[in-house]
């Protein structure tokens, strides 16, 4: 019996190391849900879609590039100065993101305020560098960083989707709720985001349980 070649290929990809590295961070070890990292900015700037997308893409850029770079440099990095190296590499890319937003999206940059700069202290960044990039090759580290940071991105966007609709009655600043809809002010504040995040945790863990990824 012949099976479709496409399906066969896809199934094979699912067993390769790069795919498993990516999907572990992306789904099974979702940085926000399972590692419980990066919560501060998740709660603070997931109030609007545009903020969540800008912040999420910023984190994706910083994590993937800095993880790959640390992996490339890993044989030259003096072990006792690891942390300094992480900080220099991370902060350089964070400031580049900050300058890019300031130049091209000044309004979003002002709304994000200090949180772009605080990507430097986002534990997902240093967590992936110390846990993975320092021991693995650049390609795998890039995929690992991509998985972890996109899990942060879609978590932000999912929370922002509900928070913007409920809190502002808009979606990407376009009105979607009738004018008579009373905005839930509490959900736009960081404290209100806790309630939504708890629901998200519950749903995510149920879904993840139903469709588990292969055990390592």
């Amino acid at each position: 019996m012949r099976s479709e070649p496409n399906r066969l290929n896809l199934r094979r990809i699912a067993y390769t190391r790069p795919w498993r590295t990516f999907i572990a961070g992306f789904f099974k070890e979702n940085a926000v849900v399972y590692q419980v990292l990066g919560l501060c900015s998740t709660l603070a700037v997931s109030n609007k879609m545009e903020n969540a997308i800008a912040m999420g893409l910023g984190v994706v850029f910083v994590v993937t590039i800095s993880s790959a770079l640390i992996a490339l440099l890993r044989h030259w990095i003096p072990p006792q100065y690891r942390m300094i190296t992480y900080m220099i590499v991370t902060s350089t890319f964070v400031i580049i993101v900050d300058q890019f937003l300031k130049a091209n999206f000044p309004v979003i940059s002002a709304q994000l305020g200090p949180y772009v700069g605080l990507i430097i202290t986002n534990c997902i960044v240093m967590g992936r560098q110390e846990a993975f990039a320092i021991k693995n090759g650049a390609w795998l580290s890039f995929l690992d960083g991509l998985g972890s940071s996109t899990s942060y991105l879609y978590t932000m966007v999912t929370l922002a989707f509900f928070r913007e609709i409920l809190g502002f009655g808009t979606l990407l600043n376009i009105r979607v709720m009738p004018a008579s809809f009373p905005p839930w002010v509490v959900i736009t504040m960081a404290q209100g985001a806790w309630f939504l995040l708890a629901v998200y945790y519950w749903v995510f863990r149920r879904v993840a349980k139903l469709r588990p990824v292969e055990q390592e």
Binding site: P78, I84, I88, I95, I96, Q99, F100
Partner: peptide, 18 residues
Amino acid sequence: LFIVVLGTVSVALLMAAQ
């Protein structure tokens, strides 16, 4: 030397971004 080189590259990148 490693830290100095890394720092120099980083400063150059930041100045370009600025």
